[in-house]
Nucleic acid binder design. Structure first.
Lengths: 341, 341
DNA sequence: CTGTTAGCGCTTTCAA
DNA sequence: TTGAAAGCGCTAACAG
C-alpha cells in the first residue's frame, strides 16, 4: 500500500487517564464494563472522555480483543430493491445492540464475494451475514471463520451452518399453478440471473407446467443479467416473438413483471383479460401498478430480522433452538391475473 | 462489549517467516512492496503464503500503518435506485486499486450519520466518501478527519472540502420550464424527503413558476418520507383532490413520477394529452414505462467515478486541479409530456 | 536487499 | 475496585 497522509494527533485512552491521574485500563473499563468501576469515578471519566473528544480506536480494540463489534453484511446487489426489506430487518434487530453494520457488494461475482469475505474476516468482525452465497471457496473460508456466520438461502440447498431459508421452488410452483388455475395455458417464464435462487424458481415453474402437461422449453426466456424493468421489456418482446400464442408469463422478479406489463400494453394486449402476469417478491410498486401486480410475497423484513437475531444469539454464545429457520411465502392475487372462475 | 467467541489459530506473518527462516518484515514487504524484495525470495514467500493460507490482519495493519486501505462510503439510503449508478461509478474507479469499499446506511437520520462516520473514522479508513451530508457535527468531525473526505453534494451549498456537485435548483427550473413550454399551466410539484437536494429542487420549481406568474402554493404536495412509487400514488391523489384543475406535475424523483402515472391512468387522464408528467433522475425504468417518462438525467455514474477519483488522488497526496467539480444534468424529453408546439 | 528494534492503542491476565 | 505488565500482528525507521 502506498504511503498515506499522516494522522493528526489522536486522543488516546492514556491521554484521558493521565489527565485524571488514573490508569488506562480503568478508563477502558468505565467505557465497556460500567459495573466494574465505582460510580463517582465512572462519572468523572465519562465527563472527561466527552470533554477531550476521545473516540476509541477500533483497530486497536480489534487487535487486542479479537473482534471489532461490526457485523459484515454481504449482498449480491445492495441496490436491488428486494434487498431493502432484508436490510431494514437486519437494522431493526441490531438497533439497540452495541453491534454496528457494514455492507459490501459482490455484484453477483464469486471472485468479489471471495475477496469481500476475506476483507471482512481480516478485520475481526463480530459476525457475518450473507445472502446469495455462490462460491465454494467462500464456504470453506467461512467454515473456519473465527466468528459466527449466518446465511439467507434457499431451503433446498440444505444449508450446513446457521441459516434462514425460503423454499423458492415451491413458491414458483405456487405461482405457476395459480396462472393455470386462472385459465391461462401457454404460460411463459422470463428470468434474469442464473443464481441459485433463480434456478429454484425455474425448477418450480417447470414442475408445475409438466404436471399440467403444458411444459414447453420454447416458453422460457432468460438472460444472465441483473433484473430490471428494461430487461423485463426485452425478455417479454423476445418471448412474444418466439411464442406468439403465449397467454401469460411468470416473471422471476417484479421489476421484470413491470417491464412485461409495459410491453404488453404497448403490444395492445389487455391485462389480465388477454394476458396474465405474475411477478415475484411483492416489491413496493406491485401494489400500485395499473393494473396491480399479482405476485409472490416473500417475508424479506422477517428474513433480515430473524437472520440478525440468530447471529446475535450465536455471537453471545447462546445455544440456538434451531439452526435453520424456514420462512413461508404467500401468493398475492391482484389485477394482473384473471379472477379464478 | 460482551465477550465473543475465541478466535481459532490464525496464521501470522511471523509463522510464515519462521517456516522460511527469514524475518517477518521481509514477508510483509514481499506482499506490499514487491520491488524491495529479490525476485526468487519473493516467489518463495508468495508460494508459502498461499500454502499456509495466510491472510493479513487488517486491524494490526491499520494500527501500525495508520490506515486500513478501506474507503468508507456513506449513503442516506443504499437501496435507493438513484444510488445504484453512483455506486457503479465508485466501484469502477476503485477496481484496479488496492483500495476496498465498505458501505454504511444513514437512513436519512443525522444521528445515524454521525455514528457511522465515527465508526468509519475509528477504523483508520484510507478515505471517506459521502452523499447527502446533513449534520453540522459531522462536518466538524470530518474537518479534522485524519483521512481525505470527498462529498457528493448540491453545488449551491458551496462545499468547503473536496466535492462533486450538481446544480439541483437549476435542474428543477429546467424541468419546470419545459412543462411550461409544453403548454401546461397548472403545474404541480410532488416531493418526498425534505433533504437539502430536495429543497433545491423545490426552489427551482418555485422560481420558474413565479417567473411565469403561475406559482400557487396549493399546487405543492410533499411529505417527508423516502420516495417510492406508492408515495407517488398517494401524493398524486392528494394533489388531484386539492387542485382538480392541475394539468401537469413535476416529480422530485422518477419513482414518484411512476406512481403519478399509474394514478393518472386510474383517474382516466390521458398522458401526455390531458396531463403532463416530468420526473427526475432518469432511473432505469423511465425509458420503458408506458408512456416513457420525460425526466432530468443526472450523471450518477460519473458522479461516483469522479468523486472516487478525487478521493484516490487525495489519498495519494496529489494536488488536485479543482477541489469542486460541477457536473451537468440534462433534460430527456419522452412521451409523458406533450411535444412542444 | 534484508534485518533489528520499537512501538501503534487497546485489552487480557494476574496481582494488589 | 483499581493497577501493572504483557502482548495482539503488523509496519516505520533505521541499520547493515
Amino acid at each position: 500500500m502506498p504511503p498515506r497522509r499522516a494522522r493528526s494527533e489522536r486522543v488516546t485512552l492514556l491521554d484521558v487517564a493521565h489527565v485524571l491521574g488514573i490508569s488506562a485500563i480503568t478508563v477502558s473499563r468505565a467505557l465497556r464494563e460500567p459495573g466494574k468501576v465505582s460510580e463517582p469515578l465512572r462519572a468523572k471519566i465519562l465527563c472527561q472522555v466527552e470533554r477531550m473528544g476521545y473516540v476509541p480506536d477500533l483497530a486497536a480494540r480489534a487487535l487486542a480483543s479479537r473482534h471489532n463489534g461490526i457485523i459484515g453484511v454481504l449482498a449480491p446487489a445492495l441496490t436491488n430493491h428486494a434487498f431493502l426489506g432484508i436490510m431494514s430487518g437486519i437494522e431493526e434487530r441490531l438497533r439497540d445492540t452495541d453491534l454496528r453494520i457494514q455492507y459490501a457488494n459482490t455484484n453477483h461475482d464469486p471472485d468479489q464475494e471471495y475477496r469481500q469475505v476475506k476483507l471482512f474476516l481480516s478485520q475481526h468482525p463480530a459476525g457475518i451475514l450473507l445472502t446469495g452465497l455462490q462460491d465454494q471457496r467462500v464456504s470453506d473460508l467461512l467454515a473456519r471463520a473465527p466468528c459466527p456466520v449466518v446465511q439467507i438461502v434457499d431451503i433446498n440447498l440444505m444449508p450446513s451452518g446457521i441459516a434462514v431459508g425460503i423454499n423458492h421452488r415451491e413458491a414458483a410452483e405456487t405461482a405457476t399453478r395459480h396462472l393455470l388455475a386462472c385459465g391461462y395455458h401457454r404460460i411463459g417464464l422470463i428470468g434474469g440471473s442464473r443464481d441459485l435462487r433463480a434456478q429454484r424458481r425455474h425448477e418450480g415453474y417447470a414442475v408445475a407446467m409438466q404436471e399440467a402437461g403444458l411444459y414447453d422449453p420454447g416458453l422460457v426466456v432468460t438472460e444472465h443479467k441483473q433484473t430490471s424493468v428494461q430487461l423485463g421489456c426485452d425478455l417479454f418482446k423476445r418471448l412474444l416473438a418466439t411464442a406468439p400464442d403465449v397467454d401469460a408469463v411468470f416473471c422471476q422478479n417484479d421489476d421484470l413483471a413491470l417491464g412485461a406489463l409495459f410491453e404488453a400494453q404497448r403490444a395492445g394486449l389487455r391485462v389480465p383479460e388477454d394476458f396474465g402476469i405474475c411477478g415475484y417478491n411483492d416489491l413496493e410498486f406491485a401494489t400500485c401498478a395499473e393494473p396491480r401486480l399479482t405476485t409472490i410475497r416473500v417475508p424479506r423484513f422477517e428474513m433480515g430480522y430473524r437472520s440478525a437475531d440468530l447471529l446475535v444469539r450465536a455471537i453471545n454464545d447462546e445455544c440456538l433452538p434451531r439452526r435453520v429457520v424456514e420462512l413461508s411465502f404467500s401468493l398475492i392475487q391482484r389485477g394482473s391475473t384473471r379472477p379464478i372462475a
